[in-house]
Amino acid sequence: MTKDIPSPDNSTDAEDWLEAELRDTLDEDYEIELEDAVLSMKIREIYRNAHGPSIPRPQYFHDLLRLQSELIKLQDWVVHNKQKVVVIFEGRDSAGKGGVIKRISQRLNPRVVRTVALPAPSEREKSQWYFQRYVPHLPAAGEIVLFDRSWYNRAGVERVMGFASEDQVQQFFDDVPEFERMLVRSGIRVVKYWFSVSDEEQQMRFLIRIHDPLKQWKLSPMDLQSRIRWEDYTKAKEEMFERTNIPEAPWYIVPGNDKKRARLNCMDHLLTLFPYEDVPQEEINLPERIYNSDYERSVLPPELYVPSKY
């Protein structure tokens, strides 16, 4: 069952709400969208020439806020109906997984929607059943878990970089369809996204990270190796799709060369996968504050306060 997202033009109240929300949050969103603040003019010029115009910024924020308001409804529906949802985000390095996860979770309740980004496995974890370290992070009733990379590390980076033997990789391919079917049979909805970028786009994004001090932390030796082994990753990805694209948990590919469009398209598609609807909400009333005439607020020492530098 799919669900069309209502356009704010259908309701004056919705339009007014969106406009007010837009004004209130532009500063925050502009900060998040600060993609090229410290780039050299040369890199910036090359990148813009390679891309051409994207979605106009006002339209992008308008659609982003509209989709985020629908995600709040989805979140409330998941809680109300005690649903369990796993969303997996995979793709090449710099493909934009982190950006879309940030926008999806930006206005949601972190007690309901959790992001899981596991580090490299410890020596102890390497000796365990491969899926074991992911199991504790699976959702309980009324939760959504966003995996920023997942058990599919074995089909990608571990295979290409030689961290897993070919026997281990083939065992993974044999096991993962049944593992995901088990999750689905237990009541967990499994959604899998692959963010796809071109060879040229990944190269450009890596160059930006090299030249932007705010993004250099995103570059790791493994990222640089992924450039060298582009074709190996392509072959690994193709076999992963062939072996793990099952009806119970299909793959969805998100073209990611345009970051803004990729975010909006992914969020919109995610919403269509659930028959969510408005759920009953308790009316919230602000209680009257209790005043005590005998109470006198104490004066705190100035050294307890953060200095007002700005």
Rank of each mutant, 00 (worst) to 15 (best):
R111T: 13
E288P: 11
I72A: 14
K3C: 02
K259I: 03
P110F: 03
Y152Q: 00
E231R: 09
L18Q: 07
E158P: 02
P119K: 06
I43Y: 14
S69F: 05
S308Y: 10
L273M: 05
E200I: 12
N292K: 13
Y295W: 11
V135T: 08
V160H: 00
N265Y: 11
Q132P: 01
S165C: 07
F206T: 02
E123V: 10
E123K: 09
D278S: 11
S150E: 02
I88P: 00
F147H: 00
M1L: 11
V176F: 04
A155L: 02
R263E: 05
Q132K: 11
I104V: 08
W251A: 06
R185H: 11
V38F: 15
D29F: 05
E201M: 08
H62M: 09
E19S: 12
V299E: 08
G256M: 00
R289E: 15
R23V: 07
R159H: 04
R297T: 14
L74D: 04
I210L: 15
V176D: 10
V78A: 05
T272V: 06
D223M: 01
Q170G: 06
E277C: 09
A20M: 10
E200F: 10
R243W: 09
S186A: 15
D76Y: 05
W129Y: 00
K97I: 00
I246H: 10
D278M: 10
W151P: 01
F89T: 04
P275H: 04
E201D: 06
T115R: 12
Q106W: 07
E283A: 15
Y291R: 14
D16C: 15
E143R: 15
Q168L: 01
V191A: 02
E21M: 08
V85K: 01
E35W: 14
H269Y: 03
L108N: 04
R103Q: 05
S165H: 03
K260V: 05
L26P: 00
D36S: 14
W17Y: 14
K309E: 12
F172E: 07
K192A: 09
E21T: 13
D93M: 02
R185Y: 07
P121I: 03
V78E: 01
W251P: 12
A236K: 04
A141I: 12
L118N: 06
M1H: 07
